[in-house]
Amino acid sequence: MNWDIVEGNWKQFKGKVKAQWGKLTDDHLDVIAGRRDELVGKVQETYGVTKDEAEAQIKRFEELNKDTTPKSPS
């Protein structure tokens, strides 16, 4: 999953992120704005998990959603 593309198409991904991590609010998602490091921090903070666990969750999310990444214009 290319996070530069995710960041550029964040509105499309917000729903998927919210479905995966339902405790994240719209305000959290606005702060995250498609930045992977921000997502790691918010998952860690909101769910009380370690950074390694947050990274692992996001990696699983990436694998599950790798085919839904919008293509960048050629």
Rank of each mutant, 00 (worst) to 15 (best):
residue 47 Y to V: 11
residue 4 D to G: 08
residue 70 P to N: 01
residue 40 V to A: 06
residue 44 Q to H: 03
residue 35 R to G: 02
residue 6 V to E: 07
residue 21 W to M: 05
residue 43 V to H: 05
residue 37 D to P: 05
residue 18 K to V: 02
residue 25 T to K: 01
residue 50 T to C: 06
residue 28 H to Y: 11
residue 39 L to T: 06
residue 52 D to Q: 13
residue 58 I to A: 09
residue 30 D to F: 00
residue 57 Q to N: 12
residue 63 E to S: 11
residue 29 L to W: 01
residue 22 G to D: 10
residue 33 A to W: 03
residue 45 E to S: 11
residue 73 P to Y: 10
residue 14 K to G: 01
residue 8 G to Y: 01
residue 58 I to F: 06
residue 64 L to T: 08
residue 21 W to Y: 09
residue 71 K to E: 15
residue 14 K to Q: 12
residue 74 S to P: 15
residue 31 V to P: 03
residue 67 D to R: 07
residue 15 G to W: 03
residue 43 V to R: 03
residue 40 V to S: 02
residue 57 Q to H: 10
residue 59 K to Y: 06
residue 49 V to S: 08
residue 52 D to E: 15
residue 11 K to M: 09
residue 48 G to E: 14
residue 58 I to Q: 09
residue 68 T to S: 14
residue 55 E to V: 12
residue 66 K to D: 14
residue 22 G to S: 13
residue 61 F to W: 14
residue 71 K to P: 11
residue 63 E to N: 12
residue 8 G to R: 10
residue 67 D to C: 00
residue 7 E to L: 04
residue 52 D to H: 07
residue 36 R to L: 04
residue 43 V to P: 09
residue 12 Q to S: 11
residue 72 S to E: 15
residue 71 K to L: 14
residue 11 K to I: 12
residue 4 D to W: 01
residue 69 T to Y: 06
residue 13 F to W: 14
residue 3 W to V: 04
residue 22 G to C: 01
residue 42 K to A: 09
residue 17 V to G: 01
residue 22 G to R: 11
residue 50 T to Q: 07
residue 65 N to D: 09
residue 30 D to W: 00
residue 63 E to D: 15
residue 34 G to Y: 02
